[in-house]
């Protein structure tokens, strides 16, 4: 669903991390023996017979929404990637022409490289800072207020985050550059220099998502029983040893999830780039989604834009499946 990409971007890995989530989770212990549905089977037969029509009525809105705005657009998106389509005239089937163009399109590969660089920076440094923050917070305090405070940037829109940082990083009047100038006598064109654009945007992205990731990791830390650490202490392990030998391995499933969520949302970065650099200078921050947007709405080349979207889709699928495998492989760590 287009309207709430953030949730959608995050949802798949979350569910896959729990094994497509068929387990009762929450309330499973409260259910009586005999498994799910046993309670209903004991219910009046008449009520049960009436269930089917009501059930279909209840899922009808969701089903229609799914068919019209997810299933059909997915198929259409795949179809459009094999066509020459400029919105005003009907799509024309061109076979693999768009894919051939994709392979030889230098700008596409450049965008892919820029996106990969952005993903690398925001995932590596973002997760590192989040992990350190979560672990330290977990050792110091359970305060919801502090966790709430660091979550704050996650709640504001990317546009707001991008605007305030564009202002603070401004070469002449930005507070960051003024401090840097006083310390070093130089100014840095954070968003105006080719080499700085992507690292700067990655920094803004990390600022925005750090709290969210830290809260997720914190929740993971709370699931590790205290006895594990007590045993470690009895064996004379130091803080660093316990972190490396106990915390990290036991946290691996949730770390994998956080990394994948961050990767998926970083791959789709758009608003931060659009507001700060618009892909510049000289395509230095022309991430894939920016390029797709320009092709589609700048040049009205929807067919080719759909092809690139499909490529992005396939890459995100690959990441999700990779995560599924890793998460499964580590499921038994705590049990």
């Amino acid at each position: 669903m287009a309207a709430i990409p953030e949730q959608d971007a995050h949802a798949p890995a979350k569910l896959l991390a729990t094994g497509t989530g068929t387990a009762g989770g929450l309330g499973a212990p409260r259910r009586r023996p005999g498994g799910r549905g046993a309670g209903r089977r004991a219910g009046p037969a008449a009520a049960r017979r009436r269930d089917a029509p009501v059930a279909w009525l209840f899922i009808l809105p969701a089903l229609v929404g799914f068919l019209v705005f997810v299933a059909y657009p997915t198929l259409r998106g795949v179809y459009l990637s094999f066509t020459d389509f400029h919105v005003l005239t009907p799509p024309k089937w061109v076979g693999l022409a768009n894919f051939r163009e994709l392979v030889s399109d230098g700008t596409f590969w450049h965008s892919l490289g820029v996106t990969a660089y952005f993903v690398l920076l925001s995932v590596v440094f973002g997760i590192l800072v989040s992990l350190v923050t979560a672990v330290i917070l977990h050792r110091l305090t359970r305060s919801t207020v502090i966790r709430g405070l660091i979550l704050l940037p996650f709640l504001i829109s990317g546009v707001v985050a991008a605007l305030v940082w564009a202002w603070m990083l401004d070469p002449q009047l930005g507070i960051v550059n003024i401090v840097i100038y006083q310390l070093t006598g130089h100014r840095i064109l954070f968003l105006g220099a080719g080499g700085w654009a992507i690292p700067s945007i990655a920094m803004i992205s990390i600022w925005k998502s750090m709290g969210y990731n830290a809260v997720l990791i914190f929740a993971g830390l709370q699931t590790i029983p205290e006895q594990v650490y007590e045993a470690g202490r009895l064996d004379g392990a130091s803080e660093t040893q316990m972190f490396r030998r106990l915390t990290v391995p036991l946290l691996r499933p949730i770390l994998v999830m956080v990394v994948v969520l961050q990767m998926i949302s970083s791959f789709q970065v758009f608003d931060l780039v659009q507001v700060t650099t618009q892909g510049g200078p000289a395509n230095a921050s022309n991430v894939l989604q920016m390029y797709i947007y320009r092709k589609a709405f700048g040049e009205l080349d929807f067919g080719y834009a759909a092809t690139m979207s499909l490529a992005l889709f396939v890459m995100l699928m690959a990441i999700t499946f990779l995560q599924l495998r890793i998460a499964r492989a580590n499921e038994s760590d705590l049990s």
């Binding site: 287009a2 971007a9 089903l63 799914f66 705005f69 997915t74 459009l80 499909l310 889709f313």
Partner: peptide, 22 residues
């Protein structure tokens, strides 16, 4: 079937949904 929607990134649906809305 409905859960399979989670596999489709929102971004992939943007262009076709835009065409549909248009």
């Amino acid at each position: 079937v409905l859960l399979s929607a989670l596999m489709v990134p929102g971004i992939f649906l943007l262009l076709p949904n835009f065409v549909l809305v248009k």
